[in-house]
Design a protein around this nucleic acid. Sequence first.
DNA 1: CGATAACATGTTATCGATAACATAATACCA
DNA 2: TGGTATTATGTTATCGATAACATGTTATCG
Lengths: 344, 344
Amino acid sequence: MTLPIQKKRVTIKDVAQAAGVSTQTVSRVMNKFSYVSEDTRQRVEEVVERLGYHPSTLARSLIQQRSYTLGVVTFGLKYIGPSRTLNGVADQADALGYMMVMKELDNFDSSRIDDVIDSLLARQVDGILWAAPEIGSNHAWLDERLESIPVPVLFLAMQPRKGVSSVATDNYQGAVMAMQHLLTTGKKRIGHIAGPLSWWEAQERKRGWRETLEKAGLDASEQFCTEGNWSSASGEQAFHQLLEAYPYMDSIFVANDQMALSVLREAHRLGIRMPEQLAVVGFDNLPESAHFYPSLTTISQDLQLLGEEAVQRIVEMIQARQNNQIIPAQSWFIQPNLVVRESA
Amino acid sequence: MTLPIQKKRVTIKDVAQAAGVSTQTVSRVMNKFSYVSEDTRQRVEEVVERLGYHPSTLARSLIQQRSYTLGVVTFGLKYIGPSRTLNGVADQADALGYMMVMKELDNFDSSRIDDVIDSLLARQVDGILWAAPEIGSNHAWLDERLESIPVPVLFLAMQPRKGVSSVATDNYQGAVMAMQHLLTTGKKRIGHIAGPLSWWEAQERKRGWRETLEKAGLDASEQFCTEGNWSSASGEQAFHQLLEAYPYMDSIFVANDQMALSVLREAHRLGIRMPEQLAVVGFDNLPESAHFYPSLTTISQDLQLLGEEAVQRIVEMIQARQNNQIIPAQSWFIQPNLVVRESA
DNA sequence: CGATAACATGTTATCGATAACATAATACCA
DNA sequence: TGGTATTATGTTATCGATAACATGTTATCG
């Protein structure tokens, strides 16, 4: 059971010795700059290959004060949305030569948040991507903590704030597009199934529903909106509540597809014809949404792109800081699209 | 635009100086061992607090030759399965004090695989979790590369191999459970919609279907099985093909829930009564599956747990190696469960 | 042909922490 | 009271790489 193992890691010294040069020369060969004779270069490269040498990023980061690593804080990876965002982040980080160090939040007591930030900073991350959704006042910590963080921080899917950089889908605009589509098709009594209203994104979508109706001079009473928690099950329940509160409703804007699909299913079961009797528009554009009966008209938000953009932005911020400049804090929005299908 | 910034990072030297002690003493206070007088300890802790000092894990890793970091290689994060696994990995890594460095594969040309491994090793990860599914011969590289990797490697959802450690759901057993349930309810003409058969997991599930039928003396002809690609759309198509090939079929075992839900939908549309005329069993236990009409009987595989177990195992391997021992390579299986609902 | 630039390589200091060793002060015991 | 343990702290070497500086060699040119 006790066997000898551990092939020692090959270091720059081993290479230098084997090639009969100084470590500095090896470093020069690895980094392809400054002068190295063709002769030496080949000799070194050959040794590197033979010994299987790979420079320790760790040591390099230490001396260069730069790690090419992004700290990524996520929440709810088991849901499709966050994991698609993460996918975009991973792709783009890779493309730009950055590694990701991940921390997943389970809940939001703020002592934990301090720990998370500290552990990322201890890893010398060059920047932090905060990819946990804004729920209730779970972003309150940033008021007092943010300015003590010595690296750029970028928030995803957060309500824009002065002095803080963020990237988010334009949920309000998406909702407006959904509503305008319904209005265009002649619908006038439009109900809403909201997401959990502690979520900023749910609030924005609801605001889009309300304001569009109001601008059109239509009724946006509070009782025409019920609240779910994004899940299928809650969607079904919220639909029944809404049917009761608003029997003459001719269409619904549902805050996400998962709930919207439940609505389609229930409506179908109740023999309601769609879109004639009831038009339905969702939000998210899940893969399944295209394959339902009727297929779901929805707002497509490109979370992959959101993740990619976020990395792009933060890398710019990092580079600016390298040059001792600073990019003024800014909020970016990603525009969603309307995907018209059969349900509306 | 060009503003001065960059609060210098606080180092151990700053603390030592401010507290009037040596760096070594600060280190002793931070690591809570060896002798430090109560007096000094308090003084140092106070300075640490005041300056907001956090030790650089980077420097520590360098000297200790240990990074408390796991390399995690993933694939297909945009799908629910991989991201749930990752969720489990993240949770458990956190619980055990490890950080994760992630790399996502986009495809499988093996030069890229070498790069991925090299970049993880350059980060001095203590171990590697290979959480990309086995498809075709995409794991072939490990024959020649694995033994040159100086840290433990653990594979997830891989076919067991001699000399390689892995953790996987017992897909075969899950399939057998599904089939036995169908047999118990009196079904005898059982079709199968497989996942893409280049995937090992899809193969295993199909094998469970075939062998269970054969053992029961029933017909498991090749034409009673069609192949999808895990997606809703492909499930629908595969179902139609199967209906044609096996019109007298009284039940179906579908290799995942996403396809199974399409089957439910289509069958419902065609007016087929379930489970009397056609019983359906899926695999995965998606949240939606409980809320369909009929609700879907399925095999629940706990991917969260899979991820957690994997971290547990690799940390054991890492610790063993620290003590210069080696844990013999081993394959672990996670047992899935049958969840009986209305569809079968 | 001597001076200057371009090329090639080596030496030493450094990043931030800990390991290993050294030293000093106090306590305890025969 | 001298000797050994225990407690408390400092000094120096080290991890693996690169920065900064130094030095030597070969071209190039007026």
